[in-house]
Amino acid sequence: MKLLDVKGLKASVDGVSILKGVDLSIDRGEVHAIMGLNGSGKSTLSKVLAGHPAYTVTGGEVWFEGRNLFELAPEERARAGLFLAFQYPVEVPGVSNSAFLRLAYNTLQASKGGEELDPLEFDDLVREKIKVVEMDPAFLDRSVNEGFSGGEKKRNEILQMALLEPKLAILDETDSGLDIDALRIVANGVNSLRSKENAIVMVTHYQRLLNYIVPDYVHVMHGGRIVKTGDKGLALELEERGYDWVRAAA
C-alpha cells in the first residue's frame, strides 16, 4: 500500500478551477519535489491535501495509507500523520508557542495511545528538538509566530514537524524568504528528520533548496497538472533552461 496515492485530483477555489487532474504516488522513505511557476497549482495541492476549507475538491481521489483522505477532517489528517509546513505560517496572538506545541503534541500522542507530557516533561523534549532547527528557546515563550521573522516562522514549522513526527510532511515553499544560512539550518533540520518510515514532499519554486534536501523524484506542475516527472537532474535542467520547454512539451 502506498503512503499517499493521488488520482485525478481536481479542485477549485471561489469557483475557479485550479487543480485539473493531479496524479501522484508516494512511498515511505521517499523525498519528492514539486516544482512549478506561480499559479501552476502546487500550493493549492498542498492546501487541498491538508484540508484547507477555502478549497473545494471537485474530482478525483486521494488515499493516505489506504484511507480516503477526504473523509477526514483537517485535525484527523494531522492525527493520521499528515503534516503541512505552511508557506505563510499563521500568527496566533495571545497563544503561547510552548503551550500550543504541547497541546498539539499531546493531542497527537493521545490519538496514538502514546504518553502525554506535563509542562515540565514537555519542556525537556522541546529543548531537545529545538536544536534541530537552531532556534532560540526564547521563541517558545512568545505568542505563536507573532512578530517572528520569515526565517523564524519557518524554523517554528520544522520544529513542529520534529515534535509531531509525521508520516508525510509537505513543505510548502519552506525555502521562500530564507537567507542562505537559515536555508541551510532548516534543510539540515529536515534531513535529520528523514527516515525509511516517513516521506517528504517539498513544494518549491527554486532548485536551491534541492541542493540541501536531495529529492528522489522531481515533478513539474503546470496548468493544474503534473506534466513531467524525473530525478534530481530534472531540477537542474529546469534551473538551466527555465520552465518554458516543459510547458512547450506539455
Partner: peptide
C-alpha cells in the same frame, strides 16, 4: 485551520483562540 492542521479539534482550537 492552522491549529486544526496540527491535530487540535475544532473545539480545542476555538477555546484556545477565544481564551487568547
Amino acid at each position: 485551520f492552522y491549529l486544526k492542521s496540527r491535530g487540535l479539534s475544532f473545539d480545542a482550537a476555538r477555546k484556545l483562540l477565544i481564551y487568547a
